[in-house]
Computed example of a mutant assay.
Amino acid sequence: MAEFVTADLMAAYEALLAAGDLTCAVSDVLGHSAAMHADMRPVWPGARLLGPAVTVRPLGTDLSAVYAGIEAAPRGSVLVIDAHGLRHSAFWGERTTRAALERGLRGAVIDGACRDVTAVTRLGFPVFSTAITPNAGVRGGQGAVQVPGAPAGTPVLPGDLVLADENGVVVVPRGEEERTLRAVQAALSAEQAAIQQESAHE
């Protein structure tokens, strides 16, 4: 597991993620400003992910930084690739998925395209992207890892907590994980109480 998020904190988020619609609650408590734009969708239905971000910023269609990011990523992290929305060349596919699984990554988020959808789905690796294309990128030794980015319109720094479910992808700034969790738990409890009260009056 990535060293900058405690196991207890991750477990609490994981429990809420499994219950469903966690990204909506996180977006609410963070002022409706934490979500990546609506083009960011799961590559396969039901994909969910949670983990600290390892950020990647490719140069053009160069995949080198993606592979460098996978190699640098601690177990339990999520690779966040700011490919500037390039849709004509894929930054993720079967080979990167297998490499990420070997490293123990929890998923990938790509402001750009993915390919090998059948293989990625079969492997069960959560991937969210803004496009799908069969065209592959190239490797030329350029790009950057662990740098600030803004994939799909949302600022992401290394170590920020990334969550994704059927609704999309949200980002919790590093250092705000515990405060956000408590606010989400309180909001969900209040919502459940309101639902039960309405049901009692029907």
Results as ranks from 00 to 15, higher is better:
residue 155 P to Q: 05
residue 7 A to L: 13
residue 89 S to P: 00
residue 112 G to W: 05
residue 111 D to T: 03
residue 110 I to N: 07
residue 15 A to V: 03
residue 112 G to M: 08
residue 155 P to A: 09
residue 168 G to E: 10
residue 107 G to F: 04
residue 104 G to I: 05
residue 24 C to W: 09
residue 14 E to Y: 01
residue 86 L to A: 02
residue 16 L to Q: 14
residue 185 Q to M: 12
residue 21 D to S: 13
residue 57 R to W: 02
residue 123 L to W: 10
residue 195 I to A: 13
residue 56 V to W: 08
residue 160 D to P: 09
residue 129 S to V: 12
residue 47 A to Y: 07
residue 161 L to K: 12
residue 94 E to V: 08
residue 16 L to F: 05
residue 121 T to Q: 14
residue 153 G to I: 05
residue 66 V to Q: 06
residue 41 R to D: 00
residue 9 L to V: 14
residue 26 V to E: 07
residue 114 C to V: 15
residue 7 A to Y: 08
residue 111 D to N: 12
residue 38 A to M: 05
residue 120 V to A: 01
residue 146 Q to S: 15
residue 12 A to L: 05
residue 150 A to D: 06
residue 153 G to N: 07
residue 201 H to K: 15
residue 185 Q to C: 01
residue 33 S to E: 13
residue 185 Q to P: 00
residue 53 A to Q: 08
residue 84 H to F: 10
residue 94 E to P: 00
residue 60 G to P: 03
residue 125 F to Y: 15
residue 21 D to R: 15
residue 164 A to C: 06
residue 185 Q to L: 12
residue 159 G to M: 08
residue 184 V to D: 01
residue 120 V to T: 04
residue 52 P to G: 08
residue 127 V to D: 11
residue 6 T to Y: 01
residue 87 R to Y: 00
residue 96 T to W: 00
residue 69 G to V: 04
residue 119 A to N: 02
residue 44 W to A: 15
residue 103 R to I: 02
residue 41 R to V: 13
residue 123 L to Y: 15
residue 155 P to F: 04
residue 94 E to I: 02
residue 201 H to E: 14
residue 33 S to I: 00
residue 132 I to P: 00
residue 202 E to C: 06
residue 92 W to D: 03
residue 18 A to Q: 14
residue 20 G to K: 11
residue 90 A to L: 04
residue 75 R to L: 01
residue 29 V to G: 09
residue 137 G to Y: 10
residue 16 L to D: 13
residue 165 D to G: 06
residue 153 G to L: 03
residue 28 D to K: 14
residue 183 A to Q: 13
residue 129 S to Q: 03
residue 133 T to G: 07
residue 54 V to E: 02
residue 13 Y to P: 03
residue 174 R to G: 11
residue 189 S to D: 10
residue 151 P to H: 05
residue 13 Y to R: 04
residue 141 G to M: 11
residue 52 P to K: 09
residue 91 F to M: 11
residue 143 G to C: 09
residue 10 M to L: 14
residue 146 Q to K: 11
residue 58 P to L: 05
residue 151 P to E: 06
residue 104 G to F: 06
residue 139 R to V: 10
